[in-house]
Design a protein around this nucleic acid. Structure first.
Length: 563
RNA sequence: UGGGGCGUCGUCAAGCGGUAAGACACAGGAUUUUGGUUCCUGCAUUCGGAGGUUCGAAUCCUCCCGCCCCAGCCA
């Protein structure tokens, strides 16, 4: 049976079915980041999933900060997270929640659990608790404090909250089963003492709830219908259900796990990213080489391209490593149809057109975006002395090289055909410093009446009219597809790409490029997509970040020839 | 040799008992004033392996193999 319907991923299938059977009339999800670092492209997958599903099925997605560990969390992170989610194009309305807003209710739930005889205060040290927990193959042992009376537990827990104890003296534990084959069920810790001020609740609390206790109850409080998380929480699902079942909450969301995103040539874990930042391997969370949302944004990626990327990678349960090229495809696709084209010479080589009248300047018409006529045209100044890309000239051209070489003719985009007549070198170094060329006045605009074949077209800028610019060429952060694949004791940082950033300081670009606003995208013809750096660009010296190169089939041919 | 998951093209990923979608990548070719874009064409006789059930299996059953997750008072 041919089926032309676009297929849902397994989560959307569940949601659609719940709607169809009437299990739910309204879908509510949540995106629950812990504010202990910046969001990365892996979070984008989760954001697109959670917000995407609810917009598709007319539901709502809450933004909830899972802020139960004050020793790792900071307001800087909550601000950046909000900015990133918004930038990606999603709106949580007024539903900005914090697990810490539920601390009072969570505390009541804990009291309730104690009263039901389902939780107890354990006074074993952390090390002892670990010992008593058993191992993967051996069952654990009951804590000697497991049978404390409800009254004693209530009293102790109250005093924990009141600050009568030091960190680590007691914890509140669920009373489940120390012999469970699921280690998460061996009387997991629910509350710990931490005399640490919280970024939102200040000094109000010195006991903080653990994830397993907080998350399910926060979901229930917010009447979440589908609690979507990553695979590693699969083992926690029985505990998620146990807490809600035992407390008999009115709402019992369904936890569903999917495989987190992995991308080759980079790392996607906050722990490692924070390491790169703190140890100075990158300039910050928003370094354009970082896979963080802020890094990608500064690199020049568009929200649209990220969303398309997330659609393309799909949602499933199997661990996978997505090819970076898919991300690059997504941004090329978006920028190809939207980016304004310009000419920019990254590594300038001076060309004097000897038969062009000295002092003459022409304004030549150039198309702003061949994919979008509505973006119009612009005038580009042309004169006797211009710059071309050093790499577009070869004294000894390889096969199939159809750019400029001695005696060869090439088209200057939107300008004229020129022929190279003479190569000028530096007397001392031998370096080529200038090319003497002649132009054909009959080819204005780049056309010839005699239909003579000129296969190559190169970009250029007028020496006198172009403006200087700095260009930053970014490459992948790591040299190997999987930096975590630690053979012979190597650390992921051993695979850092030492040439992931190349700064070009002598570039010359079209004068109009000076007018671009920070953050704007554009294409440097024949080279790639670039954006004006949001932090370092200045009116006198614009700074451009290379978002991604254009596909380059010449580079492939050359590479093949070398082999 | 405890438990929970997962194995379909180089990379993602559909497939839900009726005879292997799609995308990226790759390889050819056409068009092109970006060696860009666009457009054609090709790219899994086979679904981790072996048995079995069935007229028919990637889909059901059995066994085996491989990979991931869990022993935080992290999330």
């Amino acid at each position: 049976m041919p089926n032309n319907e676009p297929s849902y991923d397994f989560i959307r299938e569940i949601v659609a079915n719940d709607l169809k059977t009437g299990k739910h009339k309204f879908i509510r999800t949540r995106f629950p980041p812990e504010p202990n670092g910046y969001l990365h492209i892996g979070h984008a997958k989760s954001i697109c999933l959670n917000f995407g599903i609810t917009s598709q099925f007319n539901g709502q997605c809450n933004l909830r900060f899972d802020d139960t560990n004050p020793s790792k969390e900071e307001v800087e992170y909550v601000e950046s997270i909000k900015e990133d989610v918004r930038w990606l194009g999603f709106d949580w309305g007024d539903r900005e929640y914090y697990a810490s807003d539920y601390f009072d209710r969570l505390y009541e739930f804990a009291i309730n659990l104690i009263k039901k005889g389902k939780a107890y205060v354990c006074s074993l040290s952390a090390e002892k608790i670990r010992e008593y927990r058993g191992t993967l193959t051996e069952p654990g042992k009951d804590s000697p404090y497991r049978e404390r009376s409800v009254e004693e537990n209530l009293d102790l827990f109250l005093r924990m909250k009141a600050g009568e104890f030091q960190d680590g003296e007691h914890v509140l534990r669920a009373k489940i089963d120390m012999a469970s084959s699921n280690i998460n069920m061996r009387d997991p810790t629910l509350y710990r003492i931490k005399h640490v001020p919280h970024h939102r609740t200040g000094n109000k609390w010195c006991i903080y709830p653990m994830y397993d206790f907080t998350h399910c109850l926060s979901d229930a409080i917010e009447t979440i219908t589908h609690s979507i998380c990553t695979l590693e929480f699969e083992n926690n699902r029985p505990l998620y259900d146990w807490v809600l079942d035992t407390l008999e909450t009115e709402c019992h969301p369904q936890q569903i796990e999917f495989a987190r995103l992995n991308l080759n040539y980079t790392v996607l874990s906050k722990r490692r990213l924070i390491q790169l930042v703190e140890e100075g391997h990158v300039t910050g969370w928003d370094d354009p080489r970082m896979p963080t949302i802020s890094g990608i944004r500064r690199r020049g990626y568009t929200p649209e391209s990220i969303r398309n990327f997330c659609d393309r990678i799909g949602v499933a349960k199997r661990d996978s490593i997505v090819d970076m090229e898919l991300l690059e495809f997504s941004i090329r696709e978006d920028l190809n149809r939207s980016a304004h084209r310009f000419m920019a010479v990254l590594d300038p080589l001076k060309v004097v057109i000897v038969n062009y009248p000295e002092g003459q300047v022409e304004e030549l018409e150039a198309i702003n975006n061949p994919e979008d006529e509505s973006m119009g045209k612009r005038m580009v100044p042309f004169s006797r002395e211009i710059f071309i890309e050093r790499d577009d000239f070869r004294e000894d051209p390889p096969k199939k090289f159809f750019r400029l070489y001695p005696g060869g003719e090439v088209r200057l985009r939107y300008a004229y055909y020129i022929t190279c007549r003479e190569v000028i070198r530096d007397k001392n170094t031998g370096e080529i410093v200038e090319l003497r060329c002649t132009y054909d006045p009959e080819t204005r605009g780049g056309w010839s009446k005699d239909k003579r074949k000129v296969k190559g077209t190169i970009h250029w800028v007028s020496k006198a009219h172009s403006v200087p610019a700095q260009v930053r060429l970014y490459d992948r952060l790591f040299t190997v597809p999987n930096p975590l694949d630690k053979k012979d004791g190597k650390d992921f940082k051993d695979y850092l790409n030492s040439t992931s950033l190349e700064v070009l300081t002598h570039c010359r670009v079209e004068p109009d490029l000076k007018k671009l606003r920070p953050g704007s995208n554009c294409q440097f013809e024949r080279q790639g997509y670039f954006c004006v750096d949001m932090k370092d660009s200045e009116a006198d010296l614009p700074v451009f970040n290379r978002t991604v190169t254009l596909r380059d089939s010449w580079a492939k041919i050359e590479k093949k020839a070398k082999k």
